[in-house]
Simulated assay, not measured.
Amino acid sequence: MGAAVAGWTVAAVLLQVAGLSLFLYGFFPVKPTLRGFSGAESYRVPSCGSVSAGEQEPALPPDQLRSLYRELSGIPPVYDRLVLMVIDGLPAEFVLGRGRKPPSKKMMESMPYTQSLLAGCKAAGYHAKAAPPTVTMPRLKAMVSGAIGGFLDVAFNFNTQAFLEDNLLDQLHMIGLKLVMLGDETWIKLFPTLFTRQDGVSSFYESANITGTTSQKASRPNMGMYFRFCL
């Protein structure tokens, strides 16, 4: 009798372990990494029979890639410098309101410059819906590559590794633009060799005041500057 009970107990434990493993495998799938970056073929107008199947175009220097990019876009550059400012933890209703209602007067007075741009049709405000999880690292990956994060990214967020898939920042770097980063060190962990200059702040140091050095760093000549502020 005792042996039978022990056997059923072992079988039940094994069944639970198998069920838990199946659940974890289905609920936390590991997304395969598509290494590599698109080359000169992405900067040309698609055509039939221009390149044989399986044949890759030779790598081009940054100045030629930049010329191809401008020729394909057909839009001449107006500015030679871009500042991308990402404010983490800013609810959309603080700027755009909620439920088709404008934000409160107190919220509008707290961000007068942003509200003036929206009121003067010099900026477009909209809600961007993101699938969970919405922690820092998956957000940044989605912004620069369009990749959809998984639930397992919550664990990877605390041990961020270099991002090896095709993305916007690497493409800008390939055409010769210089990138400078000031803010959350997650950017540096994702792109450790990309920035010409960098000044990272820990994601957990939310009281960090890094705005004081912004004007000093922005005064140096750069083609692109990327900032991420922790609020």
Rank of each mutant, 00 (worst) to 15 (best):
M1C: 10
G2L: 09
V5I: 13
T9N: 10
T9V: 11
V13P: 02
V13G: 04
A18I: 05
L20G: 10
L22I: 05
F23I: 13
Y25K: 13
G26Q: 14
P29V: 08
P32E: 09
T33I: 14
R35Y: 11
S38G: 15
G39L: 04
A40C: 08
A40K: 01
E41T: 06
V45N: 04
S47T: 11
C48K: 12
G49D: 06
G49M: 07
G54M: 11
A59Y: 03
L60S: 06
L60Y: 12
P61N: 13
S67H: 07
L72S: 02
V83E: 04
M85W: 11
V86K: 01
L90H: 10
A92H: 10
E93M: 08
E93V: 05
L96F: 10
G97R: 01
R100Y: 05
K105W: 04
K106M: 09
M107S: 15
M107W: 15
Y113R: 13
Q115E: 11
Q115I: 03
Q115W: 03
H127F: 07
A131H: 14
P132M: 05
P132I: 06
T134R: 11
V135S: 05
T136I: 08
R139Q: 09
A142D: 01
A142G: 06
G146L: 07
A147L: 09
G150H: 04
G150V: 00
A155E: 07
N159H: 14
A162E: 15
F163E: 00
D166R: 02
D166A: 09
N167S: 14
L172M: 14
G176W: 05
L179T: 01
L182Y: 01
W187Y: 15
I188Q: 05
K189E: 06
T193Q: 12
T193F: 13
L194H: 03
Q198K: 14
V201S: 08
S202I: 03
S202E: 10
S202W: 05
T211R: 13
G212C: 05
T213V: 12
T213A: 11
T214C: 08
K217E: 12
R220C: 06
R220A: 13
M223D: 13
M225P: 00
M225R: 00
R228S: 06
F229D: 00
L231T: 15
L231F: 13
